[in-house]
């Protein structure tokens, strides 16, 4: 099975080319990190994979679990097992976290032709996962991301990931805006979730996040394409001398 294969992907927004013949392959159970300077197209890649309709894919192929990902709409991609942890999670006043996540997991289960979770089973699952991430039950009564601190928003993204149990998680600069303690809590949550079946694509500027998560591969991205790939030592090289050598 091809898990994720992106082949010569070209993407523009408002006529400006952002991804330029972008290529990457990720296998089941692998952790990949993409590092790159501002404006190189990292977040565009994350959003295109999640199905954001603002971006125009002009050519290229994206195969995810043997299916053409570009044929699927936003929700179908999520139901197929793709999860984007947002750089800036959106505040949605009035939409309560618990029923939202319940509807979300049930849409995935329905798509997988599995029995949906009743209220009690879902409440137990949510409470257990929230406790593991140090999220209070009071927070679960609130509206999505409304009034949350930066750390709370990111922790809530991890909670959603743990409930939806995706095969591929994309972290779009999850470390931005987090202090050291919040970063540790978030990365602990990610590490608990890792296993040999789950894959991750981590987009970041800094080595710090990768020190906690330990990726199998590190890629450097510039001008809409990967210019160098290697192991974790590449992240140390970037930390020491920046991106100008790439």
């Amino acid at each position: 099975m091809i898990f994720l294969n992106i082949n010569n992907l070209n993407v523009s927004i408002e006529g400006k080319k952002i991804l330029d013949d972008f290529n990457i392959s990720i296998n089941e159970g692998e952790v990949h990190a993409i590092m790159g300077p501002n404006g190189c197209g990292k977040s565009t890649l994350a959003n295109v994979l999640a199905g954001n309709e603002e971006y125009e894919v002009s050519s290229g192929k994206v195969i995810f679990k043997d299916q053409n990902l570009l044929d699927l709409n936003i929700e179908e991609r999520s139901q197929k097992g793709l999860f984007l942890a947002f750089q800036y999670p959106v505040e949605i006043p009035g939409v309560n976290i618990t029923p939202f996540l319940h509807a979300s997991i049930n849409s995935k289960l329905k798509n997988d032709k599995k029995p949906e979770l009743d209220n009690l089973s879902f409440a137990k699952l949510l409470r257990k996962n929230a406790e593991e991430l140090g999220i209070s039950s009071d927070m679960l009564k609130r509206s999505i991301n409304t009034g949350f601190s930066g750390g709370e928003k990111k922790r809530y993204e991890i909670l959603q990931m743990s409930i939806l149990n995706p095969d591929l998680t994309i972290f779009d600069e999850t470390d931005s805006g987090l202090d050291v303690d919040a970063l540790r809590i978030v990365t602990e949550g990610i590490n608990k979730f890792k296993d040999s079946k789950k894959s991750f694509l981590i987009i970041t500027h800094y080595q710090k996040l990768l020190d906690y998560i330990h990726p199998d591969y590190v890629h450097v991205m510039r001008n809409g394409k990967i210019v160098k790939s290697g192991d974790i030592s590449l992240a140390s090289e970037i930390e020491a001398s920046g991106y100008q050598n790439f």
Binding site: V90, I105, L164
Partner: peptide, 23 residues
């Protein structure tokens, strides 16, 4: 952006729209 966020969690466009309007 709210619609995109909800849909990215597997909720179809129509349901996501209803959630936002109801809220």
């Amino acid at each position: 952006s709210a619609l995109y966020y909800l849909r990215s969690r597997g909720i179809n466009k129509n349901e996501a729209m209803k959630m936002i309007i109801s809220s």
